[in-house]
């Protein structure tokens, strides 16, 4: 069972290799329960890889990752336990196209938490209301816009009642006019005290919601700090260059 006293995520001295390529170098990161973290950096810097290590979509080769007091090892039991407590939202939504929105949301609660269909559906409708699309429950993902699909994906993750939510560039695949509706949902979630790790380039979101912003480059955490200090007074040259590139115009 998750330890309520424990930090949400603790990463110590973690390294990740793809063959000979050193993808993540000596990552140190502690996320307290209820903290909102935004991770940014140029593409290929390892930010997605890092959060994908937290629920074992990627395997790390050295160091430790501890989630809610459970260490992530090869032990399948631990991996299962952690995945039950960690929800994830993907850049390309990854909804199941052959199931309705409602079925997408009830599948895991019924199979993993053994909820009855009735319970699962009632709960799913609650979360679909929260992301403001209860009226789309019986449609298929292919019938929805990108923004709607991503909100369904958030609802689907929430249906497992996770302690921690990982967002892997949730707005990068969206048309500009749909970004706001997804960010709204994320802001609401943050205000309710969800522990969140978001890889995103939405600096407005980072400024208004994040407790801490982390900048990564070439597989390392280069700089981190509260958003005010991070944006207005970055210390590292690489951070300054990155911020000038994405905020410059």
């Amino acid at each position: 069972m998750p330890d309520p006293q424990a930090n949400a995520v603790e990463i110590r001295n973690m390294h990740k290799y793809y063959g000979a390529f050193h993808a993540l170098k000596n990552i140190e990161l502690t996320v307290k329960s209820g903290e909102r973290i935004v991770i940014c950096g140029p593409s290929g810097s390892g930010k997605s890889t890092m959060i994908r290590c937290i629920n074992r979509l990627e395997e790390h080769q050295a160091g430790t990752i501890t989630v809610l007091g459970t260490e992530l090892t090869d032990d399948v039991h631990n991996i299962d336990e952690i995945r039950r407590e960690v929800g994830m939202v993907f850049q390309h939504f990854n909804l199941f196209p052959h199931m309705t929105v409602l079925e997408n949301c009830t599948l895991a609660p019924m199979l993993v938490r053994k909820a009855s269909q009735r319970e699962a559906e009632a709960e799913a409708m609650g979360f679909l209301e929260k992301v403001k699309i209860p009226d789309q429950a019986l449609k298929y993902p292919g019938q929805l816009s990108g923004g709607q699909q991503q909100r369904v994906a958030i609802a689907r993750a929430l249906c497992m009642r996770p302690e921690i939510m990982l967002f892997d560039e949730p707005t990068s695949a969206l048309d500009p006019e749909m970004i706001a509706e997804v960010l709204d949902v994320m802001v609401n979630l943050a205000q309710e005290g969800m522990t969140m790790l978001c890889v995103t380039h939405e600096m407005g979101f980072a400024r208004s919601v994040a407790d801490r912003v982390i900048f990564m480059d070439q597989g390392e955490i280069v700089e981190e700090g509260p958003p005010g200090a991070f944006f207005d007074n970055p210390q590292n040259e690489r951070t300054k260059l990155f911020l000038s590139q994405i905020l410059g115009h």
């Binding site: 895991a108 199979l111 993750a157």
Partner: peptide, 25 residues
Amino acid sequence: RGQFEAGQALGLHFWQILGRIVLPQ
């Protein structure tokens, strides 16, 4: 690949992902 990963992230096991998500597609 993302279909399999979405299943894993939700905590489903290999055979559940195969049977409920991958094979129907």
